[in-house]
Amino acid sequence: MKSRSTRIWAWIAVVGGFIFDMAYGHTLSVGPLRADLGFVCLMVAGLFVGASTGAVLGLALGILQASYGSVYAGSVMVSRAAAGWGVGVLEEHLFRDSAHVAVALTFAGTLFCELTFFACAPQSAIGEFATGSFWTACGNGLLALPVYLALRRVMARRTDDVDYSR
């Protein structure tokens, strides 16, 4: 079982990341790179929680983001829930205590999330959407490193579900 405090830290990370993103998200862009701090926190925190908690965290992030003016509310919620679940499932198979894994998973998770979003809400400008998604994935991947290093300090030592003896 995941420890209770791990889940609490995961919630704090996702909600805190979302709030910071709402306040300063527009400054987290350099050229075409644009990072979504709330989503990055979801991906990194998802490394330390299970699939169901990841899905619930993703749905919660989707509700928060959709409440602030997305015109594709349902697609946002579903894509975040799917991405949170996906990283939670992988958490059961991957060695999570690695910055490389966190960065790679965030990059791939962003692309998966955007793909899920596109499947739910097809966009007419496919090229622009694909390019934007790629740059967002790059931005999120870069931001994942400091977020991972910060979250690992508070979450990793509280997670005791990995049975290395098996």
Partner: peptide
């Protein structure tokens, strides 16, 4: 089970 429930809730809320 978790993701199915969350996706269903997401669709409904959407």
């Amino acid at each position: 089970f978790g993701v199915v429930i969350c996706v269903a809730i997401g669709i409904g809320l959407g």
